[in-house]
Design a protein around this nucleic acid. Structure first.
Lengths: 174, 174
DNA sequence: CACGATTACATCGCACGCGATTTAATAGGT
DNA sequence: ACCTATTAAATCGCGTGCGATGTAATCGTG
Protein backbone atom coordinates (compact mmCIF):
# COMPACT_ATOMS: atom_id res chain seq x y z
CA UNK A 1 0.00 0.00 0.00
CA UNK A 2 2.36 2.71 -1.22
CA UNK A 3 1.69 6.37 -1.56
CA UNK A 4 1.00 6.29 -5.30
CA UNK A 5 -2.14 8.32 -5.68
CA UNK A 6 -4.29 5.79 -7.49
CA UNK A 7 -7.53 7.57 -7.03
CA UNK A 8 -6.53 10.74 -5.25
CA UNK A 9 -8.95 13.57 -5.65
CA UNK A 10 -6.45 16.09 -4.40
CA UNK A 11 -7.66 15.70 -0.83
CA UNK A 12 -5.66 16.61 2.24
CA UNK A 13 -4.06 13.17 2.68
CA UNK A 14 -1.23 11.87 0.50
CA UNK A 15 -2.37 8.32 1.14
CA UNK A 16 -4.31 6.58 -1.60
CA UNK A 17 -7.79 5.41 -0.72
CA UNK A 18 -8.64 1.71 -0.94
CA UNK A 19 -11.31 0.34 -3.20
CA UNK A 20 -13.95 -0.77 -0.69
CA UNK A 21 -13.26 -4.44 0.07
CA UNK A 22 -16.13 -6.89 0.39
CA UNK A 23 -16.91 -8.18 3.84
CA UNK A 24 -15.09 -11.46 3.27
CA UNK A 25 -11.97 -9.66 2.12
CA UNK A 26 -11.67 -7.81 5.42
CA UNK A 27 -9.02 -9.08 7.79
CA UNK A 28 -10.87 -7.40 10.63
CA UNK A 29 -14.01 -9.39 9.84
CA UNK A 30 -12.04 -12.61 9.56
CA UNK A 31 -10.68 -11.95 13.06
CA UNK A 32 -14.10 -11.00 14.34
CA UNK A 33 -15.81 -14.05 12.87
CA UNK A 34 -13.07 -16.49 13.88
CA UNK A 35 -13.05 -15.19 17.45
CA UNK A 36 -16.80 -15.51 17.74
CA UNK A 37 -16.64 -18.94 16.12
CA UNK A 38 -14.08 -20.12 18.66
CA UNK A 39 -16.26 -18.78 21.46
CA UNK A 40 -19.31 -20.63 20.21
CA UNK A 41 -17.33 -23.87 19.92
CA UNK A 42 -15.52 -23.55 23.23
CA UNK A 43 -18.20 -22.23 25.57
CA UNK A 44 -20.21 -25.48 25.77
CA UNK A 45 -17.07 -27.23 26.99
CA UNK A 46 -16.33 -24.45 29.48
CA UNK A 47 -19.85 -24.68 30.86
CA UNK A 48 -18.99 -28.12 32.15
CA UNK A 49 -16.37 -26.36 34.28
CA UNK A 50 -18.77 -23.56 35.24
CA UNK A 51 -16.65 -20.70 33.91
CA UNK A 52 -16.87 -18.26 31.02
CA UNK A 53 -14.33 -17.86 28.25
CA UNK A 54 -12.38 -14.91 29.72
CA UNK A 55 -12.69 -16.37 33.21
CA UNK A 56 -11.02 -19.51 31.89
CA UNK A 57 -8.13 -17.43 30.58
CA UNK A 58 -7.63 -15.93 34.04
CA UNK A 59 -7.42 -19.41 35.52
CA UNK A 60 -4.91 -20.46 32.87
CA UNK A 61 -2.62 -17.61 33.91
CA UNK A 62 -2.95 -18.48 37.57
CA UNK A 63 -2.32 -22.19 36.94
CA UNK A 64 0.72 -21.34 34.84
CA UNK A 65 2.29 -18.47 36.75
CA UNK A 66 0.96 -18.65 40.27
CA UNK A 67 -0.54 -15.93 42.47
CA UNK A 68 -0.14 -12.40 41.18
CA UNK A 69 -1.58 -8.91 41.19
CA UNK A 70 -4.54 -7.69 39.18
CA UNK A 71 -2.22 -5.62 37.01
CA UNK A 72 -0.07 -8.64 36.20
CA UNK A 73 -3.14 -10.53 35.06
CA UNK A 74 -4.27 -7.56 33.02
CA UNK A 75 -0.89 -7.34 31.30
CA UNK A 76 -0.71 -11.07 30.59
CA UNK A 77 -4.25 -11.16 29.19
CA UNK A 78 -3.99 -7.76 27.51
CA UNK A 79 -7.17 -6.90 29.36
CA UNK A 80 -8.38 -3.67 30.91
CA UNK A 81 -8.83 -3.15 34.66
CA UNK A 82 -12.38 -2.17 33.89
CA UNK A 83 -12.92 -5.65 32.47
CA UNK A 84 -10.84 -7.56 34.94
CA UNK A 85 -11.93 -6.06 38.27
CA UNK A 86 -15.59 -7.09 38.11
CA UNK A 87 -14.67 -10.40 36.48
CA UNK A 88 -12.34 -11.32 39.33
CA UNK A 89 -15.18 -10.65 41.74
CA UNK A 90 -17.37 -13.07 39.81
CA UNK A 91 -14.65 -15.73 39.82
CA UNK A 92 -14.21 -15.15 43.53
CA UNK A 93 -17.97 -15.54 44.01
CA UNK A 94 -17.66 -18.96 42.38
CA UNK A 95 -15.10 -19.91 45.01
CA UNK A 96 -12.21 -20.44 42.59
CA UNK A 97 -9.94 -17.55 43.64
CA UNK A 98 -9.31 -15.21 46.55
CA UNK A 99 -8.48 -11.52 46.42
CA UNK A 100 -6.63 -9.74 49.19
CA UNK A 101 -4.72 -6.50 49.58
CA UNK A 102 -0.97 -6.87 49.71
CA UNK A 103 0.28 -6.03 53.21
CA UNK A 104 3.47 -4.54 51.77
CA UNK A 105 1.64 -2.28 49.31
CA UNK A 106 -1.98 -1.64 50.16
CA UNK A 107 -2.69 -0.54 46.61
CA UNK A 108 -2.01 -3.97 45.19
CA UNK A 109 -4.57 -6.77 45.21
CA UNK A 110 -3.16 -10.28 45.19
CA UNK A 111 -5.13 -12.92 43.31
CA UNK A 112 -4.71 -16.52 44.40
CA UNK A 113 -6.29 -19.86 43.60
CA UNK A 114 -8.47 -21.63 46.15
CA UNK A 115 -8.19 -25.40 46.47
CA UNK A 116 -11.30 -25.60 44.30
CA UNK A 117 -9.64 -23.41 41.66
CA UNK A 118 -6.52 -25.52 41.72
CA UNK A 119 -8.52 -28.73 41.52
CA UNK A 120 -10.34 -27.49 38.44
CA UNK A 121 -7.12 -27.81 36.47
CA UNK A 122 -7.34 -31.57 36.14
CA UNK A 123 -10.91 -31.49 34.92
CA UNK A 124 -9.80 -28.84 32.45
CA UNK A 125 -7.04 -31.03 31.05
CA UNK A 126 -9.57 -33.77 30.42
CA UNK A 127 -11.92 -31.27 28.79
CA UNK A 128 -9.16 -29.88 26.54
CA UNK A 129 -8.49 -33.34 25.16
CA UNK A 130 -12.14 -33.65 24.23
CA UNK A 131 -12.24 -30.16 22.79
CA UNK A 132 -9.25 -30.64 20.49
CA UNK A 133 -10.84 -33.83 19.22
CA UNK A 134 -14.05 -31.92 18.68
CA UNK A 135 -12.25 -29.20 16.68
CA UNK A 136 -11.34 -31.88 14.18
CA UNK A 137 -8.46 -30.00 12.60
CA UNK A 138 -4.81 -31.03 12.22
CA UNK A 139 -2.81 -29.80 15.19
CA UNK A 140 -0.13 -28.26 12.97
CA UNK A 141 -2.76 -26.11 11.30
CA UNK A 142 -3.98 -24.90 14.67
CA UNK A 143 -0.43 -24.20 15.85
CA UNK A 144 0.40 -22.39 12.63
CA UNK A 145 -2.67 -20.19 12.92
CA UNK A 146 -1.84 -19.47 16.55
CA UNK A 147 1.71 -18.43 15.65
CA UNK A 148 0.54 -16.16 12.87
CA UNK A 149 -1.94 -14.50 15.23
CA UNK A 150 0.81 -13.90 17.76
CA UNK A 151 2.98 -12.43 15.04
CA UNK A 152 0.14 -10.12 14.06
CA UNK A 153 -0.24 -8.86 17.62
CA UNK A 154 3.51 -8.30 17.85
CA UNK A 155 3.95 -6.71 14.44
CA UNK A 156 0.80 -4.78 13.55
CA UNK A 157 0.51 -1.16 14.51
CA UNK A 158 2.94 1.37 15.92
CA UNK A 159 6.11 -0.25 17.13
CA UNK A 160 6.97 2.06 20.00
CA UNK A 161 6.34 1.01 23.58
CA UNK A 162 5.09 -2.48 22.85
CA UNK A 163 5.58 -3.58 26.43
CA UNK A 164 3.40 -1.05 28.20
CA UNK A 165 0.31 -2.31 29.97
CA UNK A 166 -2.96 -2.03 28.17
CA UNK A 167 -3.93 1.07 30.04
CA UNK A 168 -0.92 2.86 28.58
CA UNK A 169 -1.83 2.19 24.95
CA UNK A 170 -1.75 5.63 23.51
CA UNK A 171 -4.56 6.76 21.26
CA UNK A 172 -3.72 6.94 17.61
CA UNK A 173 -3.90 10.23 15.80
CA UNK A 174 -3.41 10.02 12.06
CA UNK B 1 2.19 -32.73 39.46
CA UNK B 2 0.70 -35.92 40.79
CA UNK B 3 -1.19 -36.61 37.60
CA UNK B 4 -1.11 -39.91 35.79
CA UNK B 5 -3.35 -42.28 33.91
CA UNK B 6 -3.30 -40.76 30.46
CA UNK B 7 -5.40 -43.44 28.90
CA UNK B 8 -5.57 -46.11 31.54
CA UNK B 9 -8.29 -44.50 33.58
CA UNK B 10 -11.43 -46.47 33.03
CA UNK B 11 -13.44 -43.28 33.28
CA UNK B 12 -16.34 -42.19 31.12
CA UNK B 13 -14.23 -40.71 28.34
CA UNK B 14 -11.74 -42.62 26.19
CA UNK B 15 -10.06 -39.35 25.21
CA UNK B 16 -6.66 -38.55 26.65
CA UNK B 17 -6.36 -35.37 28.70
CA UNK B 18 -4.03 -32.62 27.53
CA UNK B 19 -1.13 -31.38 29.58
CA UNK B 20 -2.32 -27.88 30.56
CA UNK B 21 -0.96 -25.48 27.93
CA UNK B 22 0.43 -22.10 28.97
CA UNK B 23 -1.59 -19.04 28.07
CA UNK B 24 0.54 -18.23 25.03
CA UNK B 25 0.17 -21.74 23.69
CA UNK B 26 -3.61 -21.41 23.56
CA UNK B 27 -5.10 -20.86 20.14
CA UNK B 28 -8.19 -19.48 21.80
CA UNK B 29 -6.13 -16.83 23.57
CA UNK B 30 -4.27 -15.96 20.37
CA UNK B 31 -7.64 -15.37 18.70
CA UNK B 32 -8.91 -13.43 21.68
CA UNK B 33 -5.83 -11.22 21.90
CA UNK B 34 -5.55 -10.65 18.15
CA UNK B 35 -9.22 -9.70 17.90
CA UNK B 36 -8.92 -7.23 20.75
CA UNK B 37 -5.68 -5.91 19.26
CA UNK B 38 -7.35 -5.28 15.92
CA UNK B 39 -10.18 -3.50 17.70
CA UNK B 40 -7.80 -1.20 19.55
CA UNK B 41 -5.97 -0.38 16.34
CA UNK B 42 -9.06 0.09 14.20
CA UNK B 43 -11.48 1.90 16.49
CA UNK B 44 -9.65 5.25 16.46
CA UNK B 45 -9.97 5.27 12.66
CA UNK B 46 -13.64 4.31 12.86
CA UNK B 47 -14.30 7.12 15.29
CA UNK B 48 -13.52 9.56 12.50
CA UNK B 49 -16.51 8.01 10.73
CA UNK B 50 -18.62 8.02 13.88
CA UNK B 51 -19.35 4.30 13.94
CA UNK B 52 -18.32 1.35 16.10
CA UNK B 53 -16.50 -1.74 14.89
CA UNK B 54 -19.55 -4.02 14.41
CA UNK B 55 -21.58 -1.11 13.06
CA UNK B 56 -18.89 -0.65 10.42
CA UNK B 57 -19.25 -4.30 9.42
CA UNK B 58 -22.99 -3.81 8.91
CA UNK B 59 -22.29 -0.89 6.59
CA UNK B 60 -19.74 -2.96 4.65
CA UNK B 61 -22.40 -5.58 3.95
CA UNK B 62 -24.91 -2.95 2.85
CA UNK B 63 -22.36 -1.23 0.61
CA UNK B 64 -21.41 -4.54 -0.94
CA UNK B 65 -24.74 -6.32 -1.26
CA UNK B 66 -27.40 -3.64 -1.14
CA UNK B 67 -30.59 -3.48 0.93
CA UNK B 68 -31.56 -6.66 2.72
CA UNK B 69 -33.39 -8.12 5.67
CA UNK B 70 -32.16 -8.30 9.23
CA UNK B 71 -31.74 -12.05 8.91
CA UNK B 72 -29.57 -11.66 5.82
CA UNK B 73 -27.29 -9.30 7.70
CA UNK B 74 -27.17 -11.65 10.64
CA UNK B 75 -26.20 -14.56 8.40
CA UNK B 76 -23.52 -12.59 6.55
CA UNK B 77 -22.01 -11.28 9.78
CA UNK B 78 -22.57 -14.52 11.73
CA UNK B 79 -24.29 -12.38 14.31
CA UNK B 80 -27.26 -13.01 16.57
CA UNK B 81 -30.57 -11.19 16.25
CA UNK B 82 -30.16 -10.20 19.85
CA UNK B 83 -26.99 -8.38 18.90
CA UNK B 84 -28.13 -7.03 15.58
CA UNK B 85 -31.60 -5.72 16.39
CA UNK B 86 -30.56 -3.08 18.94
CA UNK B 87 -27.44 -2.25 16.91
CA UNK B 88 -29.48 -1.49 13.80
CA UNK B 89 -31.58 0.89 15.87
CA UNK B 90 -28.43 2.72 16.93
CA UNK B 91 -27.19 2.94 13.33
CA UNK B 92 -30.61 4.21 12.34
CA UNK B 93 -30.44 6.81 15.11
CA UNK B 94 -27.19 8.02 13.52
CA UNK B 95 -29.07 8.56 10.27
CA UNK B 96 -27.07 6.05 8.24
CA UNK B 97 -29.76 3.44 7.57
CA UNK B 98 -33.53 3.03 7.51
CA UNK B 99 -35.60 0.09 8.75
CA UNK B 100 -39.04 -0.68 7.41
CA UNK B 101 -41.36 -3.65 7.39
CA UNK B 102 -41.62 -5.41 4.07
CA UNK B 103 -45.11 -4.89 2.61
CA UNK B 104 -45.06 -8.36 1.06
CA UNK B 105 -44.15 -10.07 4.35
CA UNK B 106 -44.85 -8.06 7.45
CA UNK B 107 -42.47 -10.21 9.47
CA UNK B 108 -39.45 -9.05 7.52
CA UNK B 109 -37.63 -5.79 8.19
CA UNK B 110 -35.79 -4.30 5.26
CA UNK B 111 -32.56 -2.42 6.03
CA UNK B 112 -31.47 0.24 3.58
CA UNK B 113 -28.77 2.90 3.39
CA UNK B 114 -29.68 6.55 3.65
CA UNK B 115 -27.85 9.04 1.40
CA UNK B 116 -25.65 9.78 4.42
CA UNK B 117 -24.87 6.10 4.84
CA UNK B 118 -24.05 5.76 1.17
CA UNK B 119 -21.87 8.87 1.23
CA UNK B 120 -19.85 7.50 4.12
CA UNK B 121 -18.38 4.90 1.81
CA UNK B 122 -15.96 7.29 0.12
CA UNK B 123 -14.65 8.62 3.40
CA UNK B 124 -14.23 5.01 4.49
CA UNK B 125 -12.14 4.19 1.45
CA UNK B 126 -9.83 7.06 2.27
CA UNK B 127 -9.64 5.92 5.90
CA UNK B 128 -8.85 2.34 4.91
CA UNK B 129 -5.83 3.51 2.93
CA UNK B 130 -4.54 5.28 6.01
CA UNK B 131 -5.30 2.33 8.22
CA UNK B 132 -3.45 -0.22 6.10
CA UNK B 133 -0.43 2.11 6.07
CA UNK B 134 -0.74 2.39 9.83
CA UNK B 135 -0.81 -1.39 10.27
CA UNK B 136 2.68 -1.44 8.78
CA UNK B 137 2.62 -5.10 7.77
CA UNK B 138 3.17 -6.67 4.36
CA UNK B 139 -0.16 -7.08 2.59
CA UNK B 140 0.54 -10.69 1.73
CA UNK B 141 0.96 -11.49 5.41
CA UNK B 142 -2.37 -9.86 6.18
CA UNK B 143 -4.07 -11.70 3.32
CA UNK B 144 -2.52 -14.98 4.36
CA UNK B 145 -3.70 -14.56 7.94
CA UNK B 146 -7.17 -13.65 6.72
CA UNK B 147 -7.36 -16.76 4.56
CA UNK B 148 -6.23 -19.02 7.39
CA UNK B 149 -8.84 -17.51 9.67
CA UNK B 150 -11.54 -18.14 7.09
CA UNK B 151 -10.33 -21.70 6.75
CA UNK B 152 -10.56 -22.11 10.51
CA UNK B 153 -14.14 -20.90 10.57
CA UNK B 154 -15.02 -23.25 7.72
CA UNK B 155 -13.15 -26.27 9.02
CA UNK B 156 -13.20 -26.21 12.82
CA UNK B 157 -15.99 -27.92 14.66
CA UNK B 158 -18.69 -30.35 13.68
CA UNK B 159 -19.10 -30.62 9.94
CA UNK B 160 -22.83 -31.23 9.94
CA UNK B 161 -23.94 -29.57 6.74
CA UNK B 162 -22.68 -26.03 6.97
CA UNK B 163 -25.04 -25.24 4.11
CA UNK B 164 -27.47 -22.91 5.79
CA UNK B 165 -30.62 -22.24 3.82
CA UNK B 166 -30.21 -18.58 4.65
CA UNK B 167 -30.60 -16.10 1.90
CA UNK B 168 -27.70 -13.86 1.05
CA UNK B 169 -24.96 -15.95 2.62
CA UNK B 170 -22.76 -16.66 -0.36
CA UNK B 171 -20.08 -19.29 -0.13
CA UNK B 172 -16.78 -17.63 0.57
CA UNK B 173 -14.58 -17.39 -2.49
CA UNK B 174 -11.05 -16.10 -3.16
C1' DC C 1 -60.93 -22.48 6.18
C1' DA C 2 -59.04 -23.64 10.75
C1' DC C 3 -55.19 -24.06 13.55
C1' DG C 4 -50.86 -25.55 15.16
C1' DA C 5 -46.03 -25.06 13.50
C1' DT C 6 -42.69 -22.20 11.71
C1' DT C 7 -40.46 -17.94 10.66
C1' DA C 8 -38.61 -13.17 11.42
C1' DC C 9 -37.67 -10.20 14.50
C1' DA C 10 -37.69 -7.87 19.22
C1' DT C 11 -36.69 -7.89 24.13
C1' DC C 12 -34.38 -9.10 28.38
C1' DG C 13 -30.60 -10.51 31.31
C1' DC C 14 -25.88 -11.31 32.08
C1' DA C 15 -21.00 -10.98 31.04
C1' DC C 16 -17.60 -8.85 28.79
C1' DG C 17 -14.42 -4.76 26.74
C1' DC C 18 -12.92 -0.38 27.22
C1' DG C 19 -12.81 4.84 27.86
C1' DA C 20 -13.34 8.04 31.54
C1' DT C 21 -13.43 9.12 36.24
C1' DT C 22 -12.56 8.25 41.16
C1' DT C 23 -10.18 6.67 45.32
C1' DA C 24 -6.58 5.17 48.06
C1' DA C 25 -1.74 4.39 48.77
C1' DT C 26 3.00 5.11 47.70
C1' DA C 27 7.04 7.55 45.61
C1' DG C 28 9.76 11.55 44.89
C1' DG C 29 11.48 16.08 45.00
C1' DT C 30 12.31 20.33 47.84
C1' DA D 1 8.29 16.33 56.85
C1' DC D 2 5.30 18.28 53.17
C1' DC D 3 3.14 18.26 49.12
C1' DT D 4 2.52 16.78 44.58
C1' DA D 5 2.89 13.15 41.07
C1' DT D 6 2.30 8.61 40.12
C1' DT D 7 0.43 4.13 40.58
C1' DA D 8 -3.06 0.21 41.48
C1' DA D 9 -7.68 -0.77 41.52
C1' DA D 10 -12.43 0.11 41.46
C1' DT D 11 -16.49 2.15 39.37
C1' DC D 12 -19.57 3.90 35.77
C1' DG D 13 -21.54 4.15 31.16
C1' DC D 14 -22.23 2.43 26.67
C1' DG D 15 -22.02 -0.99 23.14
C1' DT D 16 -21.71 -5.45 21.97
C1' DG D 17 -22.57 -10.97 22.05
C1' DC D 18 -25.63 -14.40 22.94
C1' DG D 19 -29.08 -17.57 25.25
C1' DA D 20 -33.82 -17.52 26.49
C1' DT D 21 -38.16 -15.83 25.81
C1' DG D 22 -41.95 -13.20 23.61
C1' DT D 23 -44.84 -11.82 19.56
C1' DA D 24 -46.79 -11.14 15.31
C1' DA D 25 -47.13 -12.83 10.62
C1' DT D 26 -47.08 -16.59 7.49
C1' DC D 27 -47.09 -21.46 6.19
C1' DG D 28 -48.76 -26.14 5.92
C1' DT D 29 -51.85 -29.65 6.47
C1' DG D 30 -56.14 -31.58 7.06
Amino acid sequence: MGREARKSKGGPSPIAPVEMPGLDNHLCFALYAAGNHMTRLFVPFLQKLGVTYPQYLVLVVLWERGPQGVGDLAAALRMDFGTLSPMLKRIEAKGLITRRRSPADERRVQVDLTPEGTALRERTEQMLGEFYCFLNMPLDELFDLRDRLRHFVDAAGPQEEKVTPIRGLRPISV
